[in-house]
Write a protein that binds this DNA or RNA. Structure first.
Lengths: 177, 177
DNA sequence: CTTTGAATTTGACAAATGTCAAATACTAAT
DNA sequence: ATTAGTATTTGACATTTGTCAAATTCAAAG
């Protein structure tokens, strides 16, 4: 893991704003432009779309994750997704403009972000390939193997959605142990 | 689109190596560590996995794309994917170590890459959500709408694989206009 | 401990897509 | 133009997963 130099840490800390949220609070609602990036110190949350009247959870965030609607944050367009807390959570927020000023004054911060994007990119790529080429049972077993803690913190309806399968199918998979 | 300052362009050009490939040549074979990033000036290629004895194409590259096995390039682990040319192509290659030296001497190059990752991340995210929550017909129609040129340059078997559906299903969708 | 609402499971059936084999169409080289 | 090899389409059927409704289980509040 890349670590910032001391002066960058000082500069960054001056720009972070602590925000607390309770279960079910929204960090972001669709149609709003997301102008902040968040670091999730404690808690859990989900990103979801409303598609044809249904909520589709496509992503979870946990401790130490960077969180935002990346599409909205990067493009400046209104968000098409919602971010909602699954538990009481503590976030540190930074404005997009502030972050970009920090990039100019502290290249090590831009490097930290570049490396974070690399990590997140390959993580998403792996999920993508799995989702497309594994069946429902394999997806669930892989999740159990790689992120067993999710099962204990997230309700099964959200997990089914995250895996791209119906809740009933997930339930049937679980009933076969 | 972000543009480099003049000195960065000069420095970068000194580090790029031109490579030509013919149709069906491999840019990368699985099990090899991918230590280079490529800029595709001209041509087309595909990334694919061998899963259970079947080739699964999960990605295409065209003119102006950055190309590599991101997982292998970033982690330094052996590639699990192959990259193969679909046509005669011209690439510009840069070594990972060389690129990292350029990050240090020219922050604008690191910025260019950071912005490229942002773009690639949200592109992948969009594909991911589509793949998971649209049916085969919608996926094909979306592809026609957003990337009509792909149909003319890539064989249907690869496109079916890319969309995560069987070639027969794609053929039946097409027969209904 | 009981109640109430939410979460999860189960059953019956429908729909979408995959698989395998065969037929047809296309392409490039002779 | 002919041929050989490849790409694409079609048919018949199997399999997986989704949908809807109902039953059951769980969890929090009183």
């Amino acid at each position: 893991m890349y670590t910032l130099d001391a002066s960058a840490i000082v500069a960054l800390e001056k720009c972070l704003v602590k925000k607390e949220f309770f279960k079910n609070d929204f960090l972001l609602s669709e149609a709003k432009v997301c102008k902040e990036l968040y670091f999730l110190e404690k808690g859990a949350l989900r990103g979801f779309y409303n598609i044809d009247g249904k909520e589709v959870t496509h992503w979870f965030g946990f401790e130490s994750d960077f969180v935002t609607s990346f599409h909205s944050f990067i493009t400046g367009e209104p968000s098409v997704e919602n971010i909602q807390m699954l538990e009481y959570s503590i976030c540190w927020a930074i404005e997009k403009e502030t972050l970009e000023q920090l990039y100019n004054s502290h290249p090590s911060i831009e490097r930290l972000v570049r490396i974070a994007y690399e990590k997140y990119y390959i993580r998403l790529e792996e999920r993508y390939v799995n989702a497309q080429f594994k069946n429902a049972t394999q997806l669930y077993e892989d999740l159990l193997a790689s992120n067993p803690h999710i099962i204990n913190r997230v309700s099964l309806g959200y997990i089914a959605s995250y895996l791209g399968i119906s809740q009933e199918t997930l339930s049937r998979i679980r009933s076969k142990h």
